[in-house]
């Protein structure tokens, strides 16, 4: 990510202001499998509660936060996921963010994005052509 896009864009990772603020007031507590970095504030806020936030590696899409970090971010629990959750089972699949609006979104059978091909349905017929 070049310095120019850091200055002029806001949709990937942190802006310069956020990065500066994070490095001065935040403490980096962990990174998830996708590379998203999680921070908490060094000092509690005005209501006496610590603030927690994430800087995404890539697109700023809230659904990219995996379940274990989601709980920590929302103060469901205070311990960091790796220290208090059981280790992941080998059969657990990797977390995938919400695919809606992306190329990998689910397309039903027969959708145009599937190439317009659909399963046979009642009423379909095979037209004759002279070459047949």
């Amino acid at each position: 990510m070049g310095i120019l896009s850091k200055i002029f864009t806001w949709w990937d990772g942190a802006t310069i202001g956020t990065s500066l603020w994070s490095s001065r007031n935040g403490k980096h507590v962990g990174t998830d499998a996708q590379g998203n970095r999680y921070f908490r504030s060094k000092k509690p806020d005005a209501r006496g509660r610590e603030r927690r936030w994430v800087i995404y590696a890539g697109a700023n899409d809230a659904s990219r936060v995996p379940a274990e970090w989601h709980g920590w971010l929302h103060h469901s629990y205070d311990d960091l996921p790796e220290s208090h959750l059981p280790p992941p089972k080998i059969w657990e699949v990797d977390y995938t963010p919400n695919a809606t609006g992306t190329l990998s979104a689910y397309r039903p059978k027969g959708a145009l994005e599937q190439g317009g091909k659909r399963a046979r349905a009642t009423g379909d017929y095979e037209a004759w052509t002279p070459d047949a």
Binding site: D124, Y125, E126, A127, W128, A132
Partner: peptide, 9 residues
Amino acid sequence: GLTRRRLDK
């Protein structure tokens, strides 16, 4: 056979 080899145009 009514759904095959149909003349439709």
